[in-house]
Simulated scan of single mutants.
Amino acid sequence: MAGADAAGQFQKVRIQREDTAFDAYVVGKQNAPGVVVLQEWWGLNNQVKNHAIHISQLGDGYTALIPDLYRGKVALDAAEARHLMEGLDWKGAIRDIQASVQWLKKNGSPKVGVTGYCMGGALAIASGVLVPEVDAVVAFYGTPSSELADPSRALAPIQAHFGELDTYVGFADVTAAKSLEEKLKSCGVAHEVHIYPGCSHAFMNTSPEALKNQGAIDLAWSCFATWMGRFL
């Protein structure tokens, strides 16, 4: 693990999969359970890095790894973020996640979970269906398309978090959350779906709105810690 970033907390690693390679950023306790942390549609920005740092410090500590799914690109506005997300090879991203899980297991993590936010939440759930090495999933406000993954075929235990006021219809609104819950019930894996009153999309992020959501944020992190602690 060579090459600390400017903040000094992360170590940059290069992960190989098939005939390509990508950068990933690792923080936390070595030889601890691992968590792959997946970006929002913005890319690998400070928000997802802050989430990874927080995760690495939960409980007895985790090794948190963020794969750079956009290969170095970070959006500065919503239009650019949408363009990057629409251009993403989603099946390729699942292979990035699988390679990240395998890297953590080869480098001292006995078990590995996956978490993500928005686009990353959808990918986290998909990884719980498509990547057999995943031991647990916690997803925030995102569900995968039926073309990518069917949650009723989940292999890993899945916990998911949604805001009651989310307006991303069919992706992260209450209807999507309840549909996900029904699918998870049918597959028989351990699952929890939490819907937070008064919260909108991306309520876990640092923002002026986060102050009024602090109770929900604290509860979500508590549920996250309990879930990962149980399965990892």
Rank of each mutant, 00 (worst) to 15 (best):
L76P: 05
R17Q: 02
L69F: 02
E80G: 05
D77W: 13
G59E: 04
L58A: 09
G92I: 11
I53C: 04
W41R: 01
Q39F: 01
T63N: 10
D89A: 13
Q39T: 03
K12D: 02
A78S: 13
Y62N: 00
F22G: 00
H51L: 11
G72M: 12
N31P: 11
G34L: 12
K49T: 06
D89I: 13
L65N: 08
L76S: 04
F22E: 08
L84R: 02
D89L: 13
G87W: 12
A79G: 15
K73P: 02
V13P: 01
N46A: 09
A81H: 01
A52E: 00
T20Q: 15
G59R: 08
T20K: 15
Q16M: 12
S56F: 10
L44Y: 05
V48G: 05
R17W: 07
A24N: 08
R14D: 06
M85Q: 03
G92K: 10
K49G: 07
H83A: 14
K73M: 07
S56P: 11
L38F: 13
A81S: 11
F22I: 00
W41Q: 02
T20N: 15
V36K: 03
L65M: 14
G59H: 07
H54E: 02
V48N: 02
Q39R: 01
L69H: 00
D60V: 08
N31A: 15
D23L: 14
K91A: 14
I55A: 08
H83I: 07
A79K: 15
G92T: 10
V48L: 12
E18R: 04
D19S: 05
I15H: 10
R95A: 11
A79Y: 09
I94V: 15
A93Q: 06
A21M: 13
L38G: 04
V13L: 07
N45G: 00
G28W: 08
L44W: 04
R82M: 09
L84A: 04
I94W: 05
